[in-house]
């Protein structure tokens, strides 16, 4: 009799069948079965038909814009998001809490609202557009506008991924580096950067995934010119309105596959950077 007393008295928690059954049924009905339908529909198109749809010039241009702008937006977010996280964690200044809370604004502001607001700002007669116009910079109704909208929706992801890592970073390490004669810049680049890099990559991945599928914030500012500023999700809605269900589905599957591929690549990068850091340590 080696069974410890404590576990002998433990009760089995009730409700496994009920909650598990409900969870799996609800997940299946709302998410998994409908998503599976997407792939069945594409299978009906055949590989050749699928390829014909996704390599048509208009679809290619839309996919390139959606994913290119999402990547560009995510890069902007990594740079400014990390800077913002750094300033919020390390420095004290008036209204810090309010700025900290405002980071989540892109989550809280409905996409359609963000879309028309950004358009109002960056249109040639808007508050910001008016300043850029004389320099020949057009933002609204160009791919640049799409990048701005992507950066807007993705910003909170990077800040919120980097912030906790900076808060937990041990200052002793920085002190050690400094006392060994490293300059401040060296310390930041060689000691701090490796600790927050996983957060930056995670934030990049989340921001990218969100922006690649984004619709509401983008369609107003994009201008939606075919081959120039038309994003992939918009093309899906256009094909649906033309009752081209198979074409819409093919574009959707292409988007899902591309997202998956890029996220796997980023994930690999994360594993690599974590491994590298362990070796250094």
């Amino acid at each position: 009799m080696t069974v410890p007393q404590k576990s002998a008295r433990r009760h089995t928690m009730p409700g496994f069948g009920l909650t598990m059954g409900y969870t799996v049924a609800y997940l299946g009905l709302i998410v998994l079965i409908p998503l599976a339908g997407l792939f069945f529909k594409t299978a009906g198109l055949g590989l050749e038909g699928f390829w014909r749809v996704v390599t048509s010039p208009r679809v290619l241009a839309a996919l390139r814009l959606s994913f290119g702008a999402a990547l560009a937006g995510a890069f902007i977010n990594v740079i400014f998001g990390s800077l913002v996280a750094w300033v919020l964690v390390r420095y004290r200044f008036p209204a810090r809490r309010i700025f900290d809370a405002a980071i989540d604004l892109p989550f809280a502001l409905p996409t359609a609202v963000a879309g028309i607001a950004l358009t109002a700002l960056y249109a040639p007669n808007g508050w910001i557009g008016r300043l850029l116009e004389p320099h020949g910079i057009k933002v609204a109704y160009t791919p640049l506008g799409v990048i701005i909208a992507c950066a807007f929706v993705g910003l909170p992801f990077v800040v919120r991924s980097v912030q906790p890592l900076l808060e937990e970073a041990e200052r002793e390490l920085e002190e050690a580096a400094a006392s060994l004669g490293a300059s401040r810049l060296q310390t930041v680049l060689r000691v701090l950067l490796p600790t927050v890099l996983p957060g930056m990559l995670a934030g990049f991945a989340l921001a990218f995934a969100r922006a690649a599928g984004e619709y509401g914030s983008i369609i107003f500012i994009a201008g939606n010119k075919p081959l120039v500023s038309e994003i992939a999700p918009l093309l899906i809605t256009i094909k649906l309105e033309e009752y081209d269900y198979a074409g819409a589905t093919a574009v959707a599957v292409a988007m899902l596959l591309l997202s998956l591929l890029l996220l796997l690549a980023i994930n690999g990068l994360q594993v690599w950077s974590a491994g590298r850091q362990r070796r250094v340590a």
Partner: peptide, 19 residues
């Protein structure tokens, strides 16, 4: 799988129900 809907474009989410 519970987090999956976050990585699906809203338009694609609408599309699956149209299908």
């Amino acid at each position: 799988l519970i987090d999956l809907p976050f990585s699906v474009s809203p338009v694609v989410a609408g599309l699956v129900y149209v299908l």
